[in-house]
C-alpha cells in the first residue's frame, strides 16, 4: 500500500469518548512529531473477522474521528485503530481497548421543567436522546436503552437552605407542602443501576411558589 518502513512513533492514548452514545475516537499525536502528521482510521466489530476503513478519516490531520454511525448498534462491541504518516514514514496501528457503547458511554443530565402553585412545585424530567445520524432520524430516548433509568432530584429552599433529595423512576415529581412565596431551586441527575452509570447534576432551575392569597 505504498507505506514505507514504519518507524514513525505511534499515535498515543487511542480511545473512545462517548456521550449519549455519540462515539468519537480520540488520540494524541505521536511523540516528538510537529505539524504535518496525517492519520487513517479503521474499526472492527468484536468477534467479526475484518477491519473496516473509515474513508472520512483517511489522511486527516485532526486527532479525532466520529465513529458514531459505525458503532451505533449497542448490542455489539468494537475496536478502533489509528495509524500515523509523516514524510513517507508511518507508525504501527494503535488500537483502543474493547469498546462497549452500552457501558462505556457517558450520559448527559436530564432536561428539567418546573412550575409552581402556592404550596407545591411540579417537576418534569426528560432523559437525553441517544445520538442519531440526522435530525430527521428516529429519536430514541436513553430511557428505552436503559429501562432501569431513574432520576435523583434535589430541591433546595433558597430561604432556609434546606435541601430534599428524591429518587424517582417516572419522569414527573410533585413536591407538596411548600411555603408560599418562597424560591426553590431544582437540579436533577440520571442514574442507572445496571450497568452502573450516572450523569452529572443538571444546572439549577429556580422558581418561586405563588404568594398566599389569603395572607
Amino acid at each position: 500500500s505504498g507505506e514505507l518502513y514504519c518507524s514513525l512513533p505511534n499515535p498515543r492514548n487511542v480511545h473512545f469518548e462517548s456521550i449519549n452514545m455519540k462515539n468519537v475516537l480520540h488520540w494524541s499525536a505521536p511523540e516528538g512529531t510537529g505539524d504535518g502528521v496525517l492519520y487513517k482510521v479503521k474499526y472492527s466489530v468484536y468477534g467479526v473477522g475484518k477491519w473496516i476503513r473509515k474513508p472520512e478519516c483517511k489522511n486527516i490531520n485532526r486527532t479525532w474521528c466520529d465513529l458514531s454511525s459505525e458503532t451505533s448498534d449497542y448490542e455489539e462491541q468494537y475496536y478502533a485503530s489509528v495509524k500515523a504518516f509523516l514524510n513517507g514514514m508511518c507508525s504501527d496501528w494503535m488500537e483502543t481497548t474493547r469498546f462497549n457503547p452500552l457501558t462505556d458511554t457517558k450520559i448527559d443530565p436530564p432536561m428539567v421543567i418546573v412550575s409552581s402553585t402556592e404550596k407545591s412545585i411540579s417537576i418534569i424530567l426528560t432523559a437525553p436522546e441517544k445520538w442519531k445520524r440526522s435530525p430527521e432520524g428516529e429519536s430514541i430516548s436513553l430511557l428505552q436503552v436503559y429501562p432501569g433509568l431513574q432520576y435523583n432530584v434535589s430541591v433546595l429552599n433558597k430561604k432556609t437552605k434546606k435541601r430534599w433529595l428524591f429518587s424517582v423512576s417516572n419522569n414527573t415529581l410533585v413536591v407538596p407542602w411548600l411555603e408560599p412565596g418562597t424560591a426553590y431551586c431544582v437540579s436533577a441527575q440520571i442514574y442507572v443501576t445496571t450497568p452502573l452509570l450516572h450523569s452529572g447534576f443538571s444546572k439549577e432551575y429556580c422558581i418561586a411558589t405563588l404568594k398566599d392569597k389569603t395572607a
Binding site: 472492527s44 468484536y46 468477534g47 467479526v48 473477522g49 475484518k50 475496536y79 481497548t97 474493547r98 457501558t103 443501576t193 445496571t194 450497568p195 452502573l196
Partner: peptide, 25 residues
C-alpha cells in the same frame, strides 16, 4: 447484578487485554 458488574468493571480492561483474538467471540 450490581456486584457482578462492578467486579467485572474492575478487571475488564485487564482481562480483555489478555485476549488478542478480535475475530472470534
Amino acid at each position: 447484578v450490581t456486584e457482578i458488574r462492578s467486579g467485572f468493571a474492575a478487571i475488564k480492561a485487564n482481562i480483555q487485554a489478555r485476549d488478542p483474538i478480535r475475530t472470534l467471540s
